[in-house]
């Protein structure tokens, strides 16, 4: 049988003892002086604070933030409203309605069918990234940004106006 009393999984186990204190320990002042030395060392240490609006903590490159619906290099929306993202979504946060592309709208939508409305409920979304994986058209991605706070629940249902990539960002569209 193993000796459980001496077993230490973390390797940092210490036996507790309640010995009587020596005279030096009873004085307390040396211990307090030592403690004050420790606090003074912390006083001069570099600070860990990140001053938020000016400085931002770097996210991991695989951070999954709020979604973006991509446009192609000509500025046309890639999404074809196939519904695979909604199907794969474990939180059922995505809803959409589809429409057929009309003549003269080729510069707006890449495929013949497109999402007329596309809504993600950010309160339901668990940011798992399965929509990103399911998308056959490389239309939906999770970005490095956070979904900002809002005063009302309705504000968290993101429509196309919030999700679709801005026209001015097309140049940087290399994904």
């Amino acid at each position: 049988m193993a000796d459980f009393k001496s077993l230490s999984l973390s390797g940092r186990k210490k036996d507790v003892s309640d010995k009587d204190m020596t005279f030096m320990e009873k004085l307390y002042l040396p211990a307090i002086a030592k403690g004050m030395g420790i606090t003074l060392r912390h006083f001069f240490k570099p600070k860990v604070t990140i001053q938020y609006p000016e400085q931002k903590r770097e996210f991991s490159p695989i951070f999954r933030g709020r979604h973006i619906l991509m446009r192609d290099e000509n500025g046309a929306e890639r999404c074809t409203a196939c519904g695979l993202c909604a199907l794969s979504c474990p939180a059922e946060a995505i809803t959409m309605t589809s429409s057929e592309r009309k003549k003269g709208e080729e510069h707006l939508y890449r495929e013949e069918k497109y999402a007329d409305t596309y809504e993600i409920n950010m309160l339901r979304c668990i940011f798992c990234g399965l929509c990103e994986e399911a998308c056959p058209k490389e239309a939906i991605f999770l970005t490095q940004d956070m979904a900002p706070a809002d005063y009302k629940r309705e504000g968290f249902i993101y429509g196309k106006e919030k999700l679709v990539m801005k026209m001015e960002d097309i140049k940087s569209n290399t994904k």
């Binding site: 606090t39 912390h42 006083f43 240490k45 600070k47 860990v48 604070t49 001053q51």
Partner: peptide
């Protein structure tokens, strides 16, 4: 300020 410096913070600035 000193409290935050002792706690490795910056304090009101």
């Amino acid at each position: 300020v000193f409290a935050s410096y002792f706690q490795d913070r910056l304090g009101p600035n």
